[in-house]
Amino acid sequence: GTEIELESKNGQREHYTATSEDEARKIIEKAVRRGIKRIELRGASEQLIRDMQEIAKQIGLQYRTDGSL
């Protein structure tokens, strides 16, 4: 699965493990709508990382991946 670590603007951290790319995408989209400061992805697919970079650029988000592409 993909591990997703979120940090909201007030510094609250949340951790999710998505079993599918679809689920990961839903978690990320929800977080973005809620207003999130930072997202870290571990074990994400190349496609998901590309999507994440696109989203991050659009809304000026900090993100990090573990680089295991």
Results as ranks from 00 to 15, higher is better:
E46L: 06
E7C: 11
S45R: 01
G67F: 02
D22S: 09
I28Y: 01
E5T: 14
K30F: 09
Y16R: 04
G35I: 02
I55V: 07
I28N: 00
G1H: 12
D66V: 06
E40R: 11
A18C: 13
S68N: 07
S8L: 15
I4F: 02
D66P: 02
E29W: 10
L61V: 08
R38N: 07
S45W: 03
I49Y: 09
K9L: 14
K37V: 14
S8N: 13
D66I: 04
E5H: 13
I55F: 11
G67C: 15
I59H: 15
M52A: 05
R38I: 06
R50E: 07
E23I: 05
K26W: 06
S20D: 09
K37R: 12
S20T: 12
I4P: 01
R25T: 02
I4R: 01
R38Y: 14
L69P: 07
E46C: 14
G60V: 03
A18E: 05
I28F: 15
S45I: 04
T19D: 11
D51I: 12
A44V: 05
Q53K: 10
R50C: 09
K26S: 13
A18Y: 06
Q53H: 10
T19K: 09
R42Q: 07
K57A: 12
I36D: 05
Q62S: 05
H15K: 12
E40S: 13
K37S: 11
D51S: 09
L48H: 01
L6Y: 07
D22K: 09
I55K: 04
D51K: 08
T2L: 09
Y16E: 02
K26T: 10
E54W: 05
G43Y: 08
L61H: 04
L61A: 10
L61W: 04
S45P: 06
V32P: 00
R42S: 10
G67V: 06
E29G: 07
S68A: 05
K30R: 11
T2F: 13
S20E: 05
G1F: 13
G11Q: 02
G60D: 14
R34A: 14
E3G: 06
I55Y: 11
R34V: 12
Q12M: 12
G35M: 03
A31M: 06
L69G: 06
R42A: 07
G1S: 12
R42W: 12
A31C: 06
T17P: 05
S68C: 15
T19V: 13
S45Y: 03
